[in-house]
Design a protein around this nucleic acid. Structure first.
Lengths: 114, 114
DNA sequence: GTCTTATATGCGTATATGCTCATATAGGCA
DNA sequence: TGCCTATATGAGCATATACGCATATAAGAC
């Protein structure tokens, strides 16, 4: 029976979809800016709005997306909601991408990794 | 003059856009399958069509996308075109994502990393 | 209870992206 | 030349996603 091959293939497809979705979450400049703004610790939504210059609606939406992907943790305190990066593997991802981009761009953008 | 701050901010925005675009290239299951199919060396478009089960048109389009992002190298030989992974940092990216997903999914998908 | 502040959400719109069909290009062979 | 094969591309459609406006929810102060 070629069932092993088949089911492996199917599983692999599901895996691909999951990985793709994860990359998709990181494929938005605003979400990257939000993550970047949280590098030094948790921030409230209001702080993130000021730091990123986005609208409250948009920042809130993107924070939801990041939280649902388990990249952020949510903590409510009174009127405010604080978000923290809960998956540190993001940093490595961004470092890798920045390094790769620096190489392929021939150092056109030297400040990429900052 | 707050120009330093300003221009740093602008540069950072461009950087974010570049990084986001890179992640976006990796945010499609078919493109991930194509990359996966090329792990063991270069492949022709025809081979990739068979390996991934996609249509010729679609496979060709995704290969273009990957090549334009400098993730693939293109080599023409007679009627055939061969593509190779030209940026090995992709492997680390996928490993990191797979590892992170395995953790957050509580090992629901054990074969993710295969 | 009212009022204010902080955050989230429903809805409509604009843009982007993936997919397919048909066709174009490019190279090899007779 | 004409024909066949391998790959790329233009056009159209369907879906997804980001954004803003207005409004809802939640919590504190009064």
């Amino acid at each position: 029976m070629p069932r092993n091959k088949k089911s492996l293939h199917v599983l692999s497809d599901e895996a691909m979809a999951l990985v793709a979705r994860r990359f998709g979450v990181l494929a938005e400049p605003m979400r990257l800016r939000l993550l970047h703004s949280m590098c030094d610790g948790e921030k409230s939504v209001g702080e993130l709005v000021k730091l990123t210059g986005g609208t409250q609606t948009n920042v809130s939406r993107h924070l939801q997306t990041l939280a649902h992907a388990h990249l952020l943790a949510r903590r409510k305190e009174g009127l405010q909601v604080f978000y923290t990066i809960s998956d540190p593997s993001i940093f490595r991802l961004c470092e890798l991408v920045c390094g790769s981009l620096e190489k392929s761009l021939g150092r056109q953008v030297q400040t990429l990794a900052r």
